[in-house]
Nucleic acid binder design. Structure first.
Lengths: 189, 189
DNA sequence: GTTAGCATGTAAACAGTTACATGATTGT
DNA sequence: ACAATCATGTAACTGTTTACATGCTAAC
C-alpha cells in the first residue's frame, strides 16, 4: 500500500490533518499499523495531490495556543476511489524481519548479541500484545475487530514461539566463530 | 533489508550469479523469502558495486547450451562486512497486508469479492504450508531451522485463524453499501 | 532559556520498479 | 515460427526518506 491509499483510508474514517495522519500511521495499536508508516515528506504532497484530484477537501482550522492546521475531509469521489483501490485481489502479505536474518546466522554471531536481540524482541512483542489487548474492540467495525483479533493471535504466537525455542538460537550462537585464533577456516561449506 | 545485504547473505552461503540470486530471492520456500524479493535491475548494479568495493569477486563461467554467466564469490572482506551489517539491534518486523486492509473494510465491499479473497488467501496459505513442510530441515543450519520452524508455525496460525473466523467477514460483507447502482462491476483480470 | 510538541512544507538523495534492449538455446 | 528459459544489463520513472527550513506555544 502507498501513502495515497493510506491517506484515503484514514480520511475514510473521519477528517484529519497531515500531522494527525502521520501520528495515526505510527500508532502500533491503531488498525493502520498493519499497513504503512509514512513520513511527513510523503504525506503532505500526497494530500495536496488528492485535493487537486478532488478526492479530499481541506479547510484551515484555527486553534488556541497551537498553530492552525489544515484539516482534510474525504469527498464522495474520494470514497469511490478508495473502494475501487481496495477492490482488486489482494497481493500476498509482505513481511521483512531483520531479527530472522540475524537468527538465520546465529552461529556466526556473538552469543551476547543473540541473547540481547531475543530479550529485546520478547519485550517489544509483550508490549504489543498488551497494547492490542487494551484496544476497545466494541468501538470498531466487525472488519476492524477481525483484523485486531488476527494481530493479537499472530503476535502471541510469535512471542510464544520465541519463548519456547529461544534455546535453539542461544545454544548455537557463536559456534562457528573462533574469537582469538586467526585465519580459522570454517569446516562446513 | 536492502538488495546489497540480500546479495551478501546469499553469497555467504555459496557462489551464485545475478540470475541465480534473483531466483533464490523469489523462492518462497527458501529462507531468504522472509526478507526481500529483488528485481534484476536492482541486483546487477548492486553486484557491480560490491565487486568494486572488494566484498565479492566475480568470474565468467562458460556453459554448454546456455549463455555464459558471471558467478560471484564472497571475499573475506565481504564476510566481515556482512557480519557487521547484521550485528546491529534488529528493527521491529515490517509487515504489510493488502488482505487485512480489505478485511478492515469488509462492510463496504461486495460479499462476492470478500469470499473470493478469502478463498484465494486460504489456497495460497495452504500452498505455503505444504512447501515449508517439504523443506529438508536436516540439511540446514540450526539458525535456518529456527527460521523455517517459525515460518511454518506463523503460516499455519494465519491459515487456522482465517478458516475459523472467515464468517466474521463474510457475514458483514456489503452490509454498509446501498445497491443504488445495480451490478456495475467489471470482470477483474 | 531551552527543550518538546504542534504544524506545514521543500530539496536532495536514495532505493527500487517497469519497461526495454540484446542474444543464445531448447522445446512445441 | 514461436514461446520459454537462461543471462546481463540500462533508462526512465516512482515512491519514499533524510535533512533542512520555518515559526508558534507550553512546560521545565
Amino acid at each position: 500500500m502507498n501513502v495515497r491509499t493510506l491517506c484515503l483510508a484514514i480520511l475514510y474514517e473521519g477528517p484529519a490533518s497531515g500531522y494527525e495522519i502521520r501520528k495515526l500511521s505510527m500508532d502500533e495499536t491503531h488498525k493502520f499499523a498493519h499497513f504503512v508508516d509514512a513520513s511527513y515528506a510523503a504525506i503532505y504532497p500526497a494530500l495536496n495531490k488528492l485535493e487537486e484530484e478532488g478526492l479530499i477537501s481541506g479547510r484551515v482550522e484555527h486553534q488556541e495556543g497551537k498553530p492552525a492546521k489544515r484539516v482534510y475531509e474525504i469527498t464522495e469521489a474520494g470514497r469511490k476511489e478508495f473502494v475501487r483501490s481496495i477492490s482488486q485481489m489482494p497481493e500476498a502479505d509482505k513481511f521483512k524481519s531483520e531479527f530472522l536474518l540475524m537468527a538465520t546466522h546465529a552461529e556466526i554471531l556473538p552469543p551476547r548479541l543473540i541473547r540481547e536481540a531475543i530479550e529485546h524482541r520478547i519485550a517489544s512483542l509483550r508490549e504489543k500484545v498488551q497494547a492490542l489487548e487494551e484496544c476497545d474492540t466494541c468501538a470498531c467495525s466487525p472488519g476492524s475487530r477481525f483484523v485486531l483479533a488476527y494481530g493479537l493471535v499472530m503476535t502471541r504466537t510469535s512471542l510464544a514461539f520465541l519463548e519456547e525455542h529461544r534455546a535453539m538460537l542461544e545454544d548455537v550462537a557463536g559456534a562457528a566463530v573462533e574469537q582469538d585464533t586467526p585465519d580459522r577456516t570454517e569446516a562446513a561449506e
